[in-house]
Design a protein around this nucleic acid. Structure first.
Length: 592
RNA sequence: GGGGGUGUAGCUCAGCUUGGUUAGAGCGCAGGACUGUCAAUCCUGAGGUCGCGGGUUCGAGUCCCGUCACUCCCGCCA
């Protein structure tokens, strides 16, 4: 603890331990209750709140108290006194004492605020909160989020350092690699016409560190991607990035599980390691997603064979044509499910890419209610559905049926109020395909990135049976949120060349873009692999928030703007000229 | 790039479906009263570009068109 200053000897939360002593406190005026005679002020600092009492007998202090406004900053001298039994306040930790104030020093007066700090029952719009984020952070929600984030970061560092990882920084100004997300570019003044890029991840550098013999690297790294935003995506975000040499996936899982368990402990959550593991194919089949929320156990089921025996032409034709009938039973989802809800659900499925959707409600008497109920005899027992359940069925090719039902599965728990079966579900999704067919470009694209190693037993079928090749790549999914991913990397130049050829990167192009990495691989590269965790997402989950903006001190809005600073903003002609950069759009009109 | 939602007092919202007197409420703010409150209470008051622009109409917060911002989702995010 920092020692006393002329502003304070104690923090608010510590006052009960200083009963009987004279203390000096500093903080913000949280609330004022002015009875004309006696005046109460709740004084707030980061540690909490304590009640100040101003008696008329202390004339000077009492007069000062009468002039205070919310969020004024003060320092006070007073005596910690116990409260009478009737006036103890059990709702605050310091409620058994109060400060009888003898002197007040005003440190900073506050104008009326754009929104109230002390009344957190009012949900202020995010735009206003972000414009005055420094006021928003005074509220417990923001303060708690930043405290939790700090503790989690610290726990992760301790865990990784305990496992022998070195904290190494990699450059923020680096070269653009146009694959993947769009880069944020930075013009170079000293090399006019040349550009740096901000890193999308430290990927290449951490591999170079492995070649450099660091063996175990980690970094809490800021990363940048110039793509559209979401509740869980910001243009700049923080990754816990790590890489290790001479490892197989199991060692990476172990290291990651160690620090995830430690991070969760900071939030008072206990998670058991090792985490569950689920192959990618199985995840897609059972849950229709590579990031399934396993806090709920309901799964996608197959009804294709049974559909062949029905008179329902749509289903029969689909199966005969090589498609599948897949179904999702939503426990209790059929209660209060109207015809219109059904129409909405069909439209929703179509919006997700399905040709249609069949909905079925199992009535209380066990009968089926559905526009096509007459074709579906025995459906409920086939799928293990009970009265009150909703069944959503999609007939399509396997990929579409799975992905549509998977997307619906992710939305159903909230919509139908499903009960959590466990508070936390962490799962490794393993054995991803190495590459995916890009229909538009008619080529194989990497599922992860071009440095991901195929499973050793699949190297020989790399070209002959490409679609079947699985990678030593893995994602960590918690409660349906992809919190991180990684892979074993290619450390062999020849194999790296083969993968480049497979994904249509010619030797010359590879040399141009990644020559430095390929050269490094030739000069003694150990087998290595690693992982990157979205720190913002992890903290979001542990803080119980729905958006990573809540756990980022100064986040950007959905259009990538910062309402506080006004970034992004136009720059002057002189600045551009120095960089030899010219704008193609007319000078923006300053916002009034 | 596409779809949905929102925009009214400093803050949170009602009013819009069905156009019609002076646009309301709670909180906050200002002034006053009050010596044990802890969302203090009571009295009084100020405070509005109904996001912006255009249109329809005798008349628009309300209807229509456009636009901007915020937000959620799809695309995108190797």
């Amino acid at each position: 603890m920092i020692g006393s200053s002329r502003y304070r000897s104690h923090v608010c939360a510590d006052t009960p331990e200083a009963e009987g002593q004279q203390v000096r406190l500093a903080g913000w005026v949280h609330r004022r209750r002015d009875h004309g005679g006696i005046v109460f002020i709740d004084l707030r600092d980061r540690s909490g709140v304590v009640q100040l009492v101003f008696h008329p007998e202390q004339a000077e202090a009492h007069a000062a108290a009468g002039r205070l406004s919310p969020e004024d900053v003060l320092s006070v001298i007073g005596t910690v006194v116990p409260r009478d039994a009737q006036t103890v306040n059990d709702r605050i930790p310091t409620g058994r004492v109060e400060i009888s104030v003898e002197a007040v020093e005003m440190l900073s007066e506050a104008d009326p605020l754009p929104f109230q700090v002390e009344d957190e029952s009012i949900e202020v719009s995010e735009e206003v909160r972000l414009t005055y984020r420094y006021i928003d952070l005074r509220r417990s929600r923001g303060l708690r989020a930043l405290e939790l984030r700090s503790r989690i970061t610290s726990a992760i560092r301790r865990s990784l350092e305990g496992n022998g990882f070195l904290d190494v920084e990699t450059p923020m100004l680096t070269r653009s690699t146009p694959e993947g997300a769009r880069d944020f570019l930075v013009p170079s003044r000293l090399h006019q016409g040349y550009w740096y890029a901000l890193p999308q991840s430290p990927q290449l550098f951490k591999q170079l560190l492995m070649v450099g013999g660091i063996e175990r690297y980690y970094q809490i790294a800021r990363c940048f991607r110039d793509e559209d935003l979401r509740a869980d995506r910001q243009p700049e975000f923080t990754q816990v990035d790590l890489e290790a040499s001479f490892v197989e996936p199991d060692q990476v899982y172990g290291v990651v599980e160690d620090f995830i368990v430690a991070a969760c402990a900071e939030a008072g959550q206990s998670l058991a390691a090792p985490f569950a593991r689920l192959g990618w194919e199985e995840a897609m089949r059972r849950f229709g997603s590579d990031r399934p929320d396993l806090r709920y156990s309901f799964e996608i089921q197959d009804w294709s064979q049974q559909a062949l025996g029905t008179d329902f032409a749509v289903f029969k034709k689909t199966v005969e044509g090589g498609g599948v009938i897949r179904a999702l039973v939503v426990p209790g989802g059929g209660r209060q499910f109207s015809r219109k809800d059904g129409d909405d659900l069909v439209a929703e499925a179509q919006g997700l890419g399905a040709k249609g959707l069949v909905w079925v409600v199992v009535s209380d008497d066990g009968s089926l209610r559905s526009p096509v109920a007459k074709f579906l005899e025995g459906l409920d027992s086939d799928l293990g559905a009970s009265p009150g359940d909703l069944i959503a069925m999609v007939a399509d090719d396997e990929v579409t049926a799975s992905s549509v039902l998977g997307a619906l599965r992710a939305r159903f728990p909230k919509r139908y109020g499903l009960e959590l079966e466990s508070p936390w579900a962490a799962v490794w999704i393993t054995d991803f395909p190495l590459v995916e067919w890009n229909v538009e470009e008619a080529r194989w694209d990497p599922s992860h990135h071009p440095f991901t190693a195929p499973k050793s037993e699949h190297v020989e079928i790399l070209e002959s049976d490409t679609a079947a090749v699985r990678a030593d790549a893995y994602d960590l999914v918690m409660n349906g949120v992809e919190v991180g991913g990684g892979s074993i990397r290619i450390h062999d130049t020849a194999l790296q060349q083969r993968v480049f050829e497979l994904i249509g990167v010619g030797a010359q192009e590879a040399e141009e873009k990644f020559g430095f990495l390929l050269q490094a691989l030739k000069l003694g590269a150990p087998p290595h692999g690693g992982f990157a965790l979205g720190l913002d997402r992890l903290v979001m989950l542990l803080a119980g928030e729905q958006s990573i903006r809540e756990v980022i001190p100064f986040p950007k809005t959905a259009s990538g703007a910062d309402p506080l600073t006004g970034a992004p903003a136009p720059v002057g002609a002189a600045q551009l000229e120095e960089l030899a950069v010219e704008s193609l759009v007319p000078d923006p009109v300053p916002e009034g």
